[in-house]
Nucleic acid binder design. Structure first.
Lengths: 138, 138
DNA sequence: TTACCTGCAAAGAGTTTGCAGGTAG
DNA sequence: CTACCTGCAAACTCTTTGCAGGTAA
């Protein structure tokens, strides 16, 4: 269990005021051992049920967007009605389990190197995202 | 320029009634040499401006979903406000040009082989999707 | 004090749905 | 005739925005 101070510093250091709401969201997102994959509504539910904190939706969006901009969260590309975020901001890829509708991290060792041979003049690569869809084997 | 008959047969063979609207959409989507990447609103605009046909939005959605189910279209995973489709249903990957909001096909030669080393028991791989985001180099 | 933040409600955008009327077979 | 299809508008969901009141520094 991390001390709130850690989050206060984290927020302050990136120019975000450490408000009650932001600290609460930090605790939910970053005070854990494993990567957390979530949608805004997941987060809202967790705040309400696990943390017993009612934070306005506008503030949740606001905060998540701020965290994404500061590089504390990564947005994941899945065709879904919702946007998913990942607390693991390192360069990595995902399984998407179609049966459970859940994301699973793939780390460097899980995936061979991806080589892009095509170059478009005047363009540069911003990111490479791999999504491996899996289902129950039967 | 393909004959309408081709599309009428295509539709009929998959159990879809060849209505005026569906044939018109077929002509726009499948009567071309290159892959076509589009969102519903792109399609709507093209129907209105290029084909001079006003087809109801509900019918456009309805038709595109039917075509996707029949395997005539592929849905592409991008985090975007809109859903994108691809008339190229073969196994391939994409650049997404963030500046122009346009998709570009990557063919087999453009991308090294992707090796997935992690295996989850009881699961099988359904698809592997690679999205390479690019922006203007500056 | 002052700039920034929160929360509500309303607005927006894309997509889906209900249903009356139309059309293919 | 009957099942399926179209088109309109309303409904829905997720996300963004405007703004009045609140809070950190």
């Amino acid at each position: 269990m991390k001390n709130n101070h850690v989050f206060i510093e984290k927020l302050r250091s990136s120019g975000l005021r450490p408000t009650k709401q932001r600290i609460e969201i930090c605790k939910l997102l970053f005070d854990r051992k494993d990567t957390f994959h979530f949608s805004i509504s997941d987060l809202e539910n967790n705040l309400e049920n696990l943390s017993n904190k009612k934070i306005s939706l506008a503030t949740i969006y606001n905060t998540i967007h701020a965290f994404r901009e500061k590089g504390y969260l990564k947005e994941i590309s899945i065709n879904s009605d919702k946007t998913y975020f990942d607390t693991n901001t390192s360069d990595h890829h995902h399984f998407f389990d179609e049966s459970k509708k859940k994301l699973i991290d793939l780390n460097d060792n899980d995936l061979g190197k991806i080589k892009i041979k095509k170059i478009l003049p005047g363009k540069k690569i911003k990111s490479v995202e791999v999504l491996v869809r899996i289902t129950n084997d039967k």
